[in-house]
């Protein structure tokens, strides 16, 4: 049984600047992930250095699990891929308003948003519309 799935990530509209100026990324995440979205790779090592921000920290990491969903992916991207200013990417446990999300070229609002269950080789596109000029 494959224990991880591979997800293709694309950042656009300026969002790539928060991710080392790279538009395309590929991440590998477990099939089953902690329900509390804690993203330490080994759930038992609860002493890992997750940012002490608005992350929902449970008492220990060895709690419930769920099938990997987009909500978890967002935490994963913030904790492992994001290089700077997490508040420009996430707000209140989800993507910051004004950032569009497409799952395999479909508006995530049609796919259940954060509760969408990820599949192997999904492509998730994040486009920022927050801009001036």
């Amino acid at each position: 049984m494959a224990s991880t799935i591979s997800i293709n990530i694309v950042f656009s509209g300026g969002l790539e600047l928060l991710f080392g100026n790279e538009r395309n990324h590929s991440v590998s995440i477990p099939n089953f992930v902690p329900s509390d979205n804690s993203t330490c790779s080994t759930p038992s090592s609860s002493s890992s250095s997750t940012p002490p921000s608005d992350n929902v920290v449970s008492s220990t990491g060895a709690g419930d699990t769920k099938a990997a969903d987009l909500e978890y992916l967002i935490y994963h991207l913030r904790d492992h891929l994001l290089k700077e200013r997490p508040e420009l990417f996430m707000e209140n446990g989800t993507i910051r308003p004004g950032i569009l999300v497409l799952i395999n070229d479909t508006d995530w609002e049609l796919e259940g948003e954060g509760s969408y269950q990820l599949c192997d080789n999904d492509e998730i596109l994040f486009i920022s519309t927050l801009h001036g000029g």
Partner: peptide, 14 residues
């Protein structure tokens, strides 16, 4: 110039 992101202005030509 409108801006959202503190000290960083994203201009989208879209």
């Amino acid at each position: 110039t409108a801006v959202i992101w503190p000290d960083m202005l994203i201009v989208l030509m879209a």
